[in-house]
Amino acid sequence: MSYPVTRPRRLRRNRLLRDLVGEASLDVKDLIYPIFIDEAASGRRPVESMPGVERIPLSMVEEEADAVEALGIPAVLLFGIPARKDETGCCAYQEGNVIESAIKKIKARRRNLLIITDVCLCEYTTHGHCGPIKGDTVDNDATLDIIAKVAVNYARAGADIVAPSGMMDGMVHAIRSELDFNGLKDTAIMSYAAKYASAMYGPFREAAGSGYTGFDRSSYQMDSRNSDEAMREVALDIEEGADIIIVKPALSYLDVVYRVKKEFGVPVAAYSVSGEYAMVKAAASRGWLDEKKVALEMLLSMKRAGADMIITYFAKDIAQTL
Rank of each mutant, 00 (worst) to 15 (best):
M200V: 05
E239C: 10
R156Y: 04
M190A: 13
A163V: 00
S177C: 09
D160I: 01
G166W: 00
Y192W: 03
S210I: 03
G202W: 11
V234Q: 06
K195C: 04
M190K: 08
V247A: 01
D223L: 00
G158D: 01
A230I: 07
I244H: 05
P164M: 08
M171L: 06
T187P: 02
A208G: 14
R156T: 11
M190N: 13
P164F: 09
D237R: 07
K149S: 02
R205S: 11
I246G: 01
E206M: 15
K185E: 12
N226A: 14
S224A: 15
S218A: 10
D169E: 14
L236M: 03
D216P: 03
G170P: 07
G183W: 13
E233C: 13
H173W: 13
I147S: 08
S210D: 03
G202C: 00
R156S: 05
E240H: 09
I189T: 07
V150N: 08
G183P: 14
I246M: 14
D216K: 12
L144M: 08
K185S: 15
N226W: 02
K149A: 11
G183F: 08
M168C: 15
S165A: 10
H173C: 12
L251Y: 06
S191L: 11
K195T: 11
G209Y: 02
D160Q: 15
E229T: 09
D237S: 07
G158P: 08
A199Y: 03
S191V: 13
V150D: 01
D169C: 08
N182S: 01
A230G: 09
G202K: 08
D243C: 08
S177F: 09
E178F: 11
S210Y: 12
G214Q: 02
M231Q: 02
G214C: 11
R176D: 07
I146M: 00
I245W: 02
D180H: 10
Y196R: 00
N153G: 10
L184M: 15
G241N: 05
A159Y: 12
S198G: 00
S252M: 01
L184F: 14
M231P: 03
V172H: 04
E233I: 06
E233R: 15
S252T: 13
R217D: 00
K149E: 07
R225F: 11
G211A: 15
I245L: 02
D243R: 12
H173Q: 15
D160P: 09
E229C: 10
S252W: 04
Y154C: 03
E233A: 04
F181D: 14
A151R: 07
P164A: 02
Y192G: 05
R225A: 15
Q221Y: 03
Y154P: 03
M168I: 01
G241I: 01
A207D: 10
A197T: 05
N182C: 14
T213E: 12
D228A: 07
A157K: 11
L251F: 14
E229R: 14
P164K: 04
S224K: 04
A157G: 10
A151V: 09
A159I: 15
